[in-house]
C-alpha cells in the first residue's frame, strides 16, 4: 500500500513539474458554446505567443441563473460570462467572491458584445407573425425558456413588457395583461435557451421561438434556412451579457493575470471579430461595420431606462411572488 502511494505521488509530481499548462474555467450561459469554443482557441494562441505558456480553458454551460447558483455553491469558475448582470451581482452579494463594483472594471459595463431578442418562425410564416402583438393571438404556440433559470428568457420577458408599455402609454396594468396573454400561449418552459431551441427546431413544438439573436442565427445555420426564418420585431431590448473575473477563485488558483487577459482579449480586434462571426453584436466599430449586414436595425430599449436597472427588474418581476409568478400558471 505504501509503495503504491509513493508511486502515485511520484506520478502526480512528475505530471505537475513537466507541463507548463495553465487551466482556466469559464462558467457561461447556454448559447455561447460555439462562441467560446472558437474564442478559447484564439486566446490560447495569443497567450502562447505572448508568454510561451499553454492555456487550456474549460467550459461549463447551462441556464444563466442556474450557473450563477453553481458558482455561489462552490463551482470554481475563474471567469464568469453570463447572460445578465444580475446573475453576477448575485455571486458578488451571496458568495462575496467579487467586489460589488465589478461591472466598472472593464469597458462598456463589462459587456464586450451585445445582443437582443428576436423571433424564430417556421418557413413561410404560416401564422403571419410580424411583431409582439401577433404572439398573444389565440392558438399561437410561443416557445420560450423559464425566466427563473434562464437569462435569455428574462430578456425576452422584459422585451415583451417594454413593447407593451410603449404601446399602452406606459400603463403598467395593460402591460401585465399583455404579458399574461403571451405566457398563456407558452406550451413548455425549458430551463435554458438551448433546450428551448431544440424543443422548437428539433421537436417541432410551437409556432415561434423567442430567442437570442445569435441563437436564432445559429439555429438557422444548423437546421437549415429552408426550414426557418428570423422575424425582427419593431422594438426589442438591448441585451448586455456581461463578463467578470471571479476574484476569490483566481487568487486561490494563481490565475489572476491570465483570467484578466482572457476577458480583455474579448475587446481586441480578433475577439470582436469572433463575436461578430458568432452573431453577437460587436462593440468595436470595425467589427460592427464588417458584420452590419447580419443584424437588422430595430428600436432597442435599455433595461436601465425602462425598468430602472436589473436589481429592480429582478425584484419586481422574477423574485418569488413577483409579476411573473402572478401571471404564469403552468
Amino acid at each position: 500500500m505504501k509503495t503504491l502511494l509513493k508511486i502515485l505521488l511520484a506520478a502526480s509530481l512528475a505530471v505537475s513539474a513537466g507541463a507548463k499548462e495553465i487551466k482556466l474555467l469559464n462558467v457561461s450561459y447556454d448559447p455561447t458554446r460555439e462562441l467560446y469554443a472558437e474564442y478559447n482557441n484564439a486566446f490560447a494562441k495569443y497567450w502562447k505567443a505572448r508568454t510561451g505558456d499553454d492555456v487550456v480553458v474549460s467550459q461549463s454551460h447551462g441556464g444563466s441563473g442556474k450557473q450563477a447558483q453553481s458558482v455561489i455553491n462552490g463551482l470554481e469558475a475563474d471567469v464568469v460570462t453570463l447572460a445578465l448582470a444580475y446573475d453576477i451581482d448575485a455571486i458578488s452579494t451571496q458568495a462575496r467572491s467579487l467586489p460589488a463594483d465589478w461591472q466598472k472594471r472593464l469597458p462598456n459595463n463589462s459587456t464586450p458584445y451585445t445582443s437582443t431578442i428576436v423571433f424564430l418562425i417556421r418557413k413561410g410564416n404560416p401564422r403571419q407573425i410580424k411583431d409582439w402583438d401577433d404572439l398573444v393571438k389565440k392558438g399561437v404556440g410561443v416557445v420560450v425558456p423559464n425566466p427563473k433559470t434562464s437569462g435569455g428568457a428574462r430578456w425576452a420577458y422584459l422585451a415583451a413588457y417594454a413593447y407593451a408599455l410603449e404601446h399602452n402609454n406606459n400603463d403598467d396594468a395593460a402591460a401585465r395583461g399583455f404579458i399574461q396573454k403571451l405566457y398563456k400561449n407558452v406550451p413548455v418552459l425549458d430551463s435554458g435557451a438551448r433546450g428551448s431551441t431544440v424543443t422548437f427546431a428539433q421537436r417541432q413544438i410551437g409556432d415561434v421561438l423567442l430567442a437570442w439573436e445569435n441563437e436564432a442565427h445559429l439555429a438557422l445555420k444548423e437546421f437549415g434556412a429552408d426550414n426557418f426564418e428570423i422575424v425582427t420585431p419593431s422594438l426589442s431590448i438591448l441585451a448586455e451579457p456581461p463578463v467578470s473575473v471571479v476574484d476569490k477563485t483566481v487568487r486561490r488558483h494563481g490565475t489572476a493575470e491570465v483570467a484578466k487577459a482572457y476577458l480583455e482579449y474579448l475587446y481586441s480586434d480578433e475577439g470582436q471579430d469572433i463575436a461578430g462571426k458568432n452573431f453577437y453584436r460587436p462593440r468595436n466599430e470595425k467589427a460592427a461595420a464588417k458584420y452590419a449586414s447580419r443584424f437588422a436595425s430595430l428600436k432597442l430599449v435599455g433595461i436601465d431606462q425602462v425598468f430602472g436597472g436589473w436589481a429592480k427588474a429582478q425584484k419586481t418581476h422574477f423574485a418569488d411572488g413577483g409579476v411573473f409568478d402572478q401571471i404564469f400558471q403552468p
Binding site: L25, D30, R33, S58, Q59, S60, H61, G62, S70, L75, G192, R194, G195, V198, Q202, L218, E222, F223
Partner: peptide, 24 residues
C-alpha cells in the same frame, strides 16, 4: 457535476451536452 467539459461530465451528461451542441 457543474458540467465542466472534459472534467466532471459522465457519459449521460456528455450525451446531454452533445445534444445541446446540436451534435445529434
Amino acid at each position: 457535476s457543474g458540467h465542466i467539459r472534459g472534467q466532471t461530465d459522465t457519459i449521460p451528461l456528455h450525451i446531454e451536452a452533445l445534444y445541446d451542441d446540436y451534435n445529434f
